Simulated assay, not measured.
Amino acid sequence: MGKNRHYFAGDHTAKGFYTLYDSNFQEVRRLVKLDGVLRSVKTKAMTRFAEEHNKQGYAVEWIHASSHNDWLDAVIVPELQLGVYDSQCADITAADTAVETVHTNQYVNRSSLKDKERTIHRYQQRISRALTAAQASFQTGLFVHDDLEDIYIRHLDFAKANQLAKDWQHYLHADVTATGQTPIIKHRFFGASTPNGVMDYIPNITEDVGKRYFIKGRAGTGKSTFLKKLAAASEELGYNVEMYHCGFDPESIDMIVVRDLDFCVFDSTDPHEYFPERKTDEVIDLYEKTVMPGTDEKYEKPIQKLTIKYKSYMKKGVTFLKKAKRNQDELDSIYRSAADDHAADYVFQTIRDKLK
């Protein structure tokens, strides 16, 4: 069995729906685009395609849909440079890539949907409104989170923070030889706010990484800046880097993975808090090393108040994602009722034929 790696490449965030799809398809040379309305059917076909290659011993990347826990946005077989994606999640452009299109609507009896057009339109509107409301809630939560960050930023020793980053850049790259190659940088999300709540794939992504560094700290203690500096050092030496963005504020970085150097460093704080499990795991506590002692105690009440407030908006956003999913399921049910019973089989076989 080949290795399965799971992640997101699009997410409903505080800054709208944020897409990172293109970055992950830059090495794909043959790509199948699945058009049409049958999202669950397309997911079944992609799942079969992924499982078939996995059984043949190939590693497979599963790109999940953040707005629906049961759906896929895409799958990639890196070793064969093959990919399949759902056009409803993104319009992927990749240089030097041959793109084939499968029109899944050919398996839908459109005439049987004529008397359901108003119902379909109503569900589409509900989905759009719910997703917009979710993003608005996350945005308000980010404004509150900014106030929380400000407390720690005002008590952060920037000189110590900069020196700590330099020390770790040197430590992680000591005795590392520059490759002379142009590195490949891929941007992803390891987690997302989904209809089932906030979830992540950190254990899956890091399970075969030898050295894991868990960053502890608070909002505003420079975790993202620290990670960006470490990534820049690896990139400068010519090593490929996986950059995992924050699913809440996508302009921040929550994890970097440098597989050729066998290490990863990630923000291990709520809502993706993990603790060392292996002998090789190590904690980097930015709060302890860079923030004025006693800050937590001095601002305990405002910190608690702001934390509760921002989390309430996160929960509110998730309730809107749940509402969107309920309507997506209803809409998908209508489309499937008008589709050929063997549509997923036909789509899967067409994908195989196009990627032989």
Score class of each variant (00 low, 15 high):
219 A>N: 09
221 T>E: 02
223 K>C: 02
223 K>T: 06
223 K>Q: 07
224 S>H: 03
224 S>F: 01
225 T>I: 02
226 F>I: 03
226 F>S: 04
227 L>Q: 04
227 L>R: 10
227 L>I: 06
227 L>D: 01
227 L>T: 00
227 L>M: 05
229 K>F: 09
229 K>P: 00
230 L>K: 06
230 L>V: 00
231 A>I: 07
232 A>H: 13
233 A>F: 10
233 A>M: 15
234 S>P: 13
235 E>L: 12
236 E>R: 15
239 Y>S: 08
240 N>S: 05
241 V>D: 09
242 E>M: 04
243 M>W: 09
246 C>Y: 08
246 C>N: 11
246 C>T: 11
248 F>E: 03
249 D>W: 15
250 P>L: 01
250 P>W: 05
250 P>Y: 08
251 E>N: 15
251 E>M: 15
253 I>T: 06
256 I>L: 00
256 I>R: 10
257 V>C: 10
259 R>D: 01
259 R>V: 07
260 D>I: 08
263 F>I: 05
263 F>S: 06
264 C>Q: 10
265 V>P: 00
266 F>D: 01
267 D>T: 02
268 S>V: 10
270 D>Q: 14
270 D>V: 09
271 P>Q: 11
271 P>R: 15
276 P>L: 00
277 E>M: 06
277 E>W: 02
278 R>C: 05
279 K>L: 14
279 K>N: 13
279 K>W: 15
281 D>M: 06
282 E>Y: 13
282 E>Q: 15
285 D>Y: 12
286 L>Y: 13
287 Y>S: 03
287 Y>D: 10
288 E>L: 10
288 E>P: 11
288 E>H: 10
291 V>G: 01
292 M>R: 15
294 G>S: 08
295 T>M: 04
296 D>W: 03
296 D>N: 07
298 K>C: 08
298 K>N: 11
299 Y>E: 09
301 K>T: 12
301 K>W: 10
301 K>L: 13
302 P>F: 07
302 P>A: 04
304 Q>Y: 13
305 K>Y: 14
305 K>T: 13
306 L>N: 07
310 Y>A: 00
311 K>P: 05
312 S>H: 11
313 Y>C: 07
313 Y>R: 14
313 Y>A: 08
316 K>I: 05
318 V>G: 08
318 V>D: 09
319 T>D: 10
319 T>W: 03
319 T>I: 04
322 K>C: 09
322 K>Q: 14
323 K>W: 10
325 K>I: 06
326 R>Y: 08
326 R>N: 10
327 N>W: 14
330 E>I: 07
330 E>K: 15
330 E>V: 04
332 D>S: 03
332 D>F: 04
332 D>P: 05
334 I>Q: 02
334 I>A: 00
336 R>D: 10
337 S>T: 08
339 A>H: 06
340 D>S: 14
341 D>W: 07
341 D>F: 06
342 H>N: 14
342 H>K: 15
342 H>P: 00
342 H>D: 12
343 A>T: 02
343 A>L: 05
344 A>K: 08
345 D>Q: 09
347 V>K: 11
347 V>I: 12
347 V>P: 03
347 V>T: 08
